[in-house]
Design a protein around this nucleic acid. Sequence first.
DNA 1: CGTAGATTTGAACGTCCTCAAGTCGAGTGG
DNA 2: CCACTCGACTTGAGGACGTTCAAATCTACG
Lengths: 247, 247
Amino acid sequence: MDQSIFRPVHQSTCGVACSNCNLREICLPVGLSRSELDHVDRRLVSSRRKVARGETLYRAGDRFDSVYAVWTGFFKTRLSSKDGRDQVVGFQMGGELLGLDGIGARRHEVDAVALEDSQVCVIPFAELEALALEVVGLQQQFHRILSREIVHDHGVMLLLGSMYAEERLAAFLLNLTFRLRARGFSASTVVLRMTREEIGSYLGLTLETVSRTFSKFQAEGLLFVRNRQIRITDPIGLQAVVDGASA
Amino acid sequence: MDQSIFRPVHQSTCGVACSNCNLREICLPVGLSRSELDHVDRRLVSSRRKVARGETLYRAGDRFDSVYAVWTGFFKTRLSSKDGRDQVVGFQMGGELLGLDGIGARRHEVDAVALEDSQVCVIPFAELEALALEVVGLQQQFHRILSREIVHDHGVMLLLGSMYAEERLAAFLLNLTFRLRARGFSASTVVLRMTREEIGSYLGLTLETVSRTFSKFQAEGLLFVRNRQIRITDPIGLQAVVDGASA
DNA sequence: CGTAGATTTGAACGTCCTCAAGTCGAGTGG
DNA sequence: CCACTCGACTTGAGGACGTTCAAATCTACG
């Protein structure tokens, strides 16, 4: 009953083919030629792994062997400091890579937690690097992904360093809808997969402030909130909030 | 008179050799074998470029062609939003790479500004990618550098998202001295290359708060401040501040 | 030696946090 | 099918941390 055409095709249980995946235009193999894609299918033997809601795909300190492409579901990545402070550093959806933080030190630096029942493609990193030596397009795409991750993080730093709570939440919602739209979902209707507390951690706010700000946005006619269901009625107004409408 | 042995050797005016550079154990060619290093010397024809204090190496929006390795001097990278908000997203010193933000979109996303008269090695990115296909160690090191940049940014997000002003400044100082120490400088004496305002932008604080916090640290005996000269007398105490000594 | 920028310090204010209480909703067992 | 329960969410009130505004001091450098 949930065999929707929007669900990625699971080709086989042991080998998994990028070429048949409906996320191939969003995920690692973007822009590869047919022959390059074949190459990837043959060599990048990625198995799939299920991660139940609330479970971790990997934890900080775990040995780094693979990166992961989100196939279905939704993740958060979480950085913990010694003294118990947590910071959500990212939310990942279909087609996005997890585990890039582990390349430098060969240990994962964050926890990756599934926010709903999820499946990921396991990409052994040694094989990815080996294949990148042969498939130029793969190398280039991988570099682009790493770079975009840096750019994304810079955006979060701007948000955390110099924006008000309302601006932060508006920017967060617009980023979320942007990414959902790229995956063929509605840009106006969003079902949040994370709690207010997780949003707050990501945005450097408390859960109360997130909740209050949602209510304020609703009172201002920017959106409707009903638990985790968000309907954005005025995306332009939200963008104006990000751009400092108060200024 | 400033031909100190600590200054990198400038091999020639047109070609520049990594193998003779005293930063080679910190910079891009870390861990390369002798033959790999030769390969890099021959093929990665990096010229050098001088950037005067206050000048930009590149600006947001500029076409991306090269990445840059800081050879001498000190840089900041700065992200500007439409509405004029600035956020310093990083400080770069000798051996660190600049321009990685441009790989994804083929446009630079930040401004890179020299905070003192500086020189960088120009590394044409197309050649770097081409060479990375042949020199496995170079590919791996490049991936590590990109990954560490992501990890660093996560650390800044933790700092901005869930730390107090004192904790932020203490963490900043310790990070700075750590990096200086790796380059053979004293861990206790730091000459800041940036203004209070730039520190504040990086840490999500105002320049007044930075100044006040320096004064407080001095009053508590953690360090001596005299303009941009900092002498850290109690690094362990500073670390305790980072770890939430108030808690 | 004068000027402009950088820094320090003070005082009042504001945004967001903390603490608290109550509501809502989903899942569970009776 | 309903009551129960626990976690998530909302909303309010007061307080804290950091900002804003202001003024004085210092420094570098022409």
